[in-house]
Design a protein around this nucleic acid. Structure first.
Length: 423
RNA sequence: GUGAGCGUAGCUCAACUGGUUAGAGCACUGGACUGUGGCUCCAGAGGUUGGGGGUUCGAGACCCCUCGCUCACCCCA
């Protein structure tokens, strides 16, 4: 047991039994996103460490303690991507993808890496599908992209999702709010829990969503972001909400919603699901109007989100999957060496004609081979032994009716093609 | 990083307060049926009870250490 290799903690294999869900998520994402004019971009699994520290923020949990960082042979510090937006922005700027006359819409999917303690719905290698729009501040885009996301989840058959939305303000109004909050909490600092003591320094906004009742009490009567938003942010948020209304998208305003990445401005949102344990956000995102500029590009407002595939997969009902028959069409049972050789050739001829064949490779008894055929769930089995070979025939057995006929070996492909078309 | 729970056959789980040779279902292999599946019946194979140490006449069970898994905190997708 102890010498058997195991996948690393927090990392798992996605086995054939569940792969259909994953292909379904990927296929549906491509369909829906492309309907909205998005193109796929494939970004590297790792980047220079600064790409992430700059964008995500030096004092965030991700950067401080969750990144897989290592030096390559030349001594450069590299990091396995903990999220996708930073790389997309880097690529956008690097390849001058900005086009002043239109927006750029990109999506990506793949694994991300964060070295956290694993938990239900949280892995060290986890999978995200993300989308980003560059080049407009228009709140129509905020609503439109959230609409696309909701449509995607609808296509997956997910129910009982809640969209929570907030506006974090911009670099004009957020610092003012932050100041006011620090001022308000200063005197109450000793009332805060240990975690919130730290948050006070780093990210006082987070104290809002602490579960400790003391901290909850301490924030009573405190200033809220709602009163501090500047005119621009206020109207942007109001417009976003009104566009959501026009799309008939339900939402819950959550002024306490704070995201863990520093780059967000204005709109921030999460989609949460019941029945997922405590890691209940299946998607999250928002606007980041300053990031492109910080990466050396022209001032370019942007909006994006990421979907947690592992969590989403848990919510997909088996009934939502189009059960494509994975069973082979025909099983070839061979008896003896001559027949085995014939079967070896025949199965390949069948495959060349689009017929999926399976066999037994152990030289088992006919009984055992038929048992196997049954397990594969094939409609037909071809039985070949010396007797049949001598006659140039094969026995064609219908597995559901148990009826058998002899079939000319030369006409097998033709006969099977016809039979399978009949079903 | 902190806390709690759990590790018994390939899988799901039994084994009363510590007491014979650790069981069952599913799955697997073979037979009943010398070249004919599903259903049934019979048989077989499969275990260092995660690992190490200790207590005891006796440990799967109790104690310690260790490894692993899970859940929660934190944080996020």
């Amino acid at each position: 047991m102890t010498t058997k290799y195991q996948a690393i903690k927090g990392v798992k294999d996605i086995l054939p039994a569940e792969i259909e869900k994953w292909q379904f998520m990927e296929k549906t994402a491509r369909e829906v996103f492309e309907l909205y004019g998005f193109s796929e971009i494939r970004i590297p699994i790792f980047e220079r460490t600064e790409v992430f520290t700059r964008s995500i923020g030096e004092t965030t949990d991700i950067v401080e303690k969750e990144m897989y960082t290592f030096s390559d042979r030349s001594g450069d510090s590299l990091t396995l991507r903990p999220e996708g937006t930073a790389s997309v922005v880097r690529a956008y700027v690097e390849h001058n993808l900005y086009n002043p006359s239109s927006v750029a819409k990109l999506y990506y999917m793949g694994p991300m890496f964060r070295c956290e303690r694993p938990q239900a719905g949280r892995y060290r290698q986890f999978y995200q599908i993300g989308a980003e729009v560059f080049g407009t501040e228009n709140p129509e885009i905020d609503a439109d992209v959230i609409g696309m996301l909701m449509r995607y989840f609808e296509r997956l058959g997910l129910k009982e999702l809640e969209l929570q939305i907030n506006s974090l303000g911009c670099d004009e109004c957020r610092p003012k709010f932050r100041e006011a909050l620090i001022e308000f909490l200063k005197g109450k600092r000793s009332l805060l829990c240990e975690d919130c003591q730290k948050r006070f320094e780093r990210n006082p906004l987070r104290i809002f969503d602490c579960k400790s009742t003391n901290c909850h009490e301490a924030t009573k009567g405190s200033p809220t972001i709602e009163n501090y938003r500047c005119e621009g942010c206020k109207s942007h948020f109001d417009s976003t909400l009104s566009y959501l209304d026009r799309l008939n998208i339900q939402y819950a305003k959550n002024p306490k919603l704070v995201r863990g990445l520093d780059y967000y401005t204005k709109t921030a949102f999460e989609i949460v699901s019941k029945g997922l344990g405590s890691q209940n956000a299946i998607a999250g995102g928002g606007r980041y109007d300053k990031l492109v500029e910080e990466f050396g590009g022209p001032p370019t407002p942007a909006f994006g989100f990421a979907i947690g595939m592992d969590r989403t997969a848990q919510l997909i009902q088996p009934s939502a999957l189009s059960l494509h028959a994975s069973a082979p069409h025909v099983f070839i049972a061979a008896l003896g060496e001559r027949a085995d050789l014939k079967a070896f050739e025949l199965i390949n001829v069948l495959r060349q004609n689009g017929i999926r064949g399976e066999r037994d490779y152990e030289g088992s008894s006919l009984k055992s081979q038929l048992r196997k055929a049954n397990k594969f769930g094939v409609k037909y089995t071809l039985i070949i032994g010396d007797k049949e070979l001598d006659k140039g025939k094969a026995i064609l057995r219908d597995m559901s009716s148990a009826q058998q006929d002899e079939a000319d070996m030369e006409r097998i492909v033709e006969i099977m093609t016809k039979k399978l078309r009949e079903r």
